[in-house]
Each structure stands twice: as C-alpha cells, then as structure tokens.
Design a protein around this nucleic acid. Structure first.
Lengths: 115, 115
DNA sequence: TACCTCCTGCAACGTTTGGTTGCACATGAG
DNA sequence: CTCATGTGCAACCAAACGTTGCAGGAGGTA
C-alpha cells in the first residue's frame, strides 16, 4: 500500500522538457541532441544534459552513428515508468473513494440519529 | 493526442515530499505544517513552503482553527491530478503498443520475403 | 591534403527551487 | 500573567535547469 516508486525514475519523468523529449523520441523513433533541440524551446546543451539524465535513469540509450550520437527510447523502462504513474494515480483514487464511502456512512448515521 | 497537462498541477505533484504530504493528509484527514513536519524527514518550514505550493495549485485548502492553520486535501483537484498521471501513462502505453505492432508487421514482411 | 561544415563536449555563469537555521510574533493553556 | 507551542519572515546554502562561449572531432568536397 506504500507508494514504493523508484525515485530516480520518477524525477527523470518529472521534468516537462524531458517528457516532451520522450514524446518526440517515441514519435520519430530516434534523435540526437541537435535534432531534439530544434524542436524544443531550449538550447542544444540543455537537451544534452536532459539526455544524460534520461540515460542514467535507463529511459533512453545512445548509439553512436558516425559523428553523431543517436538516442532511442528503452521501451521496457518507459513502460515501467508509465506503470508507476498509473499506480500513484490509482492509489490516490482508491483513498479518495474510501473517503467518499466513509462520508456517506457518516451521513447515513446522522440520518439515523435524526430518526 | 497532445499531452495537454496543467504544468502547475504537474510540478506540484512532481515533488516526492509533496506527494508524501498529500498521502499523509489523505490518511489523517487534515494536518498542519507542524504535525506534517513531525512525520516527514524535513523541517516544519520546508513543509510550510510545500503547503504554500500545494495551496497555489489548488490541491489543498487551509482553514484557520484557533492559533493553527489546518490543511485539507481538495478532493476534486487531486482527482484531476490523478487523471493527468493516468493520461500521460496511457499515452506512452499507446505509443509503445503502436511501435510494437509496427515491429511485428516488419517482422512478418521479412518472413514473407524469405518465403 | 586542406578547408569548411556540422555535431559534440566542457566550463563558467545566472536563476529557480528545496532545504536549513535563527529569530520574532501571536495565541491557547496553566 | 506566564509559559509553551504554532506560525511567519529573512538570510543563507546546495542542487537543478538553463544560458553563452569556446574548443575539438568527424564528414564532405575542392
């Protein structure tokens, strides 16, 4: 019942720029710091740093191709990340529903008192 | 098909300490900066700043009770946040599945060529 | 080969953010 | 009234995100 999330993985996907980078890599299949930088509102150097973070988190892998370094998404690891997002979201949903149920119970009890 | 996430909301739930605070508030119903600080590995002042962030994002609301300021979770807003988590996760899942399908198609085509 | 282009990598710097300590102030309890 | 406890504000520190500037390496072409 604990949150039990891989904190490195979460912080990697916590940044909006990195999420957009993952989206772009998924859509276009692969990309370099330069090509991603052209499609993002940040400089190439910022993109390169984000790619390093994603690489350390195992979400992408680099394969050198000539003078450029082409990055691809690690599909298994991204699937793990998606699972963690879903798990946190559903944990909250579960607690919210429990609260709602308790609130209804209290409401019923108060009605009973008034009878 | 775009990500379309409320960036303030996401960044509010992006911090691990704030997620734990939301959990605690859900479990215990309500809490102050002091009571939350006792259950977290950070100081009361850090908790107070996080509560301010969560308040600005609309995820919690404060109601003054005597000399203390008791915070409660805004259930509707937290439900929205949970939805966004789920939506990003499922968007990734969808793209991953599409990639998988394409990969299978290519594989089949190659088998056809070998026949 | 020499030259030019393009992509990469490193270093310095500024700003924001999460965290700390220290202190002042207000309010409820004895 | 006095004291304890909760809150708020300010200064300070470290890490993260972003920038600019520059050096270096690999490809293409005269």
């Amino acid at each position: 019942m604990a949150e039990q999330v891989d904190d490195d993985l979460w912080s990697a996907i916590g940044d909006p720029t990195r999420r957009r980078m993952l989206d772009l890599l998924l859509i276009e299949g692969a990309g370099t710091a330069t090509t991603l930088g052209r499609r993002l509102p940040v400089t190439r150097q910022a993109v390169a740093k984000h790619l390093a973070v994603l690489d350390r988190a195992g979400l992408v892998h680099a394969l050198p191709a000539g003078r450029e370094k082409r990055y691809r998404v690690d599909e298994a690891q991204l699937a793990r990340a998606a699972e963690q997002l879903a798990s946190v979201g559903s944990a909250w949903d579960a607690r919210l529903q429990r609260i709602k149920r308790i609130a209804e119970t209290i409401h019923r009890t108060q009605q009973d008192r008034q009878d």
